[in-house]
């Protein structure tokens, strides 16, 4: 399978502090790649570097096109949607306005209302809260909203930063089922960051392990999952 996202020698820094030190990884077209690693390893920074919200160097190719010099707004227009760490809710806007914002780069039209209805059928909870201020939704509802907002772009690639963060196991399971269904239906590719390694490895095809800004291991998710040594020394479960 060809890669929709190819990253070579990616470096990123905050001020004069270098956080990523030359990462190489790929996301296959229609595939799911997981980024694993301890707190502070640089996973969130990697997603920010792809979208251009942090200073970066190196080569990032999306669908064959170099994007490492593009501004964030243009990268989004290519079809890369991010579900950011902490959900990135527009707190004082309503649920429905948050969804409209997800489609802001698409031409205005009936499609958008249809897609909002589709999001409501995937997440009926959001429909009940459509005119509620999004900041007053529960954590799980806000996570659903963040995913729905990303879907509103009709993305080719979704970047998901810890979609299970702070959620009860039942809700986490529900969210991953929905992600699997979205992937089956629309063939969107995904790059997913997760603390919960066992969950991520079951969901992903390919996985990379990051330690202090470098990739220390990579391979097929299935193989990593079954490797006792890796599990004990890196993943700790």
């Amino acid at each position: 399978m060809s890669a929709i996202l190819e990253v070579r020698g990616l470096e990123a820094s905050y001020g004069d502090r270098t956080v990523l030190r030359g990462l190489d990884f790929e996301v296959a077209e229609g595939g799911v790649t997981a980024l694993l690693g301890a707190n502070g390893a640089g996973k969130t920074t990697t997603l920010r570097a792809i979208c251009g919200t942090v200073r970066r160097r190196g080569e990032i190719r999306f669908a064959g096109k170099r994007i490492e010099r593009m501004p964030t707004e243009s990268i989004v227009r290519l079809g890369i949607a991010q579900v950011p760490e902490g959900r990135g809710t527009f707190a004082t806007l309503t649920t429905e306005e948050n969804l409209h914002l997800g489609a802001m780069t698409r031409p205005n039209g009936r499609d958008i209302s249809l897609d909002i209805e589709r999001c409501y059928s995937i997440f009926p909870r959001l429909k009940e809260r459509r005119s509620q201020q999004a900041g007053t939704l529960s954590g799980g509802e806000q996570q659903m909203l963040a995913i729905a907002r990303a879907l509103m772009l009709r993305p080719k690639l979704m970047l998901l930063d810890e979609p299970s963060f702070g959620l009860a196991p039942m809700i986490t399971k529900h969210i991953f089922e929905i992600l699997a269904e979205v992937k089956r239906e629309s063939g969107v590719s995904m790059l997913i960051v997760e603390q919960n390694a066992s969950l991520a490895l079951r969901f992903a095809d390919q996985a990379y392990l990051i330690e202090t800004g470098s990739i220390v291991m990579s391979g097929e998710a299935k193989i990593i999952r079954e490797d006792e040594g890796v599990r004990a020394s890196y993943l700790g479960y």
């Binding site: 979208c51 919200t53 964030t72 707004e73 989004v76 227009r77 949607a81 991010q82 950011p84 990135g88 809710t89 527009f90 707190a91 004082t92 806007l93 306005e97 409209h100 914002l101 997800g102 802001m104 780069t105 205005n108 907002r149 772009l153």
Partner: peptide
């Protein structure tokens, strides 16, 4: 209006606004 909504989004949460493509 969409521009009005974008302006509100940019002031509520600039980082997220950028991530949905708002200038």
């Amino acid at each position: 209006t969409r521009v009005g909504l974008s302006m509100r989004a940019a002031s509520v949460n600039p980082e997220s606004a950028r991530l949905v493509g708002v200038r």
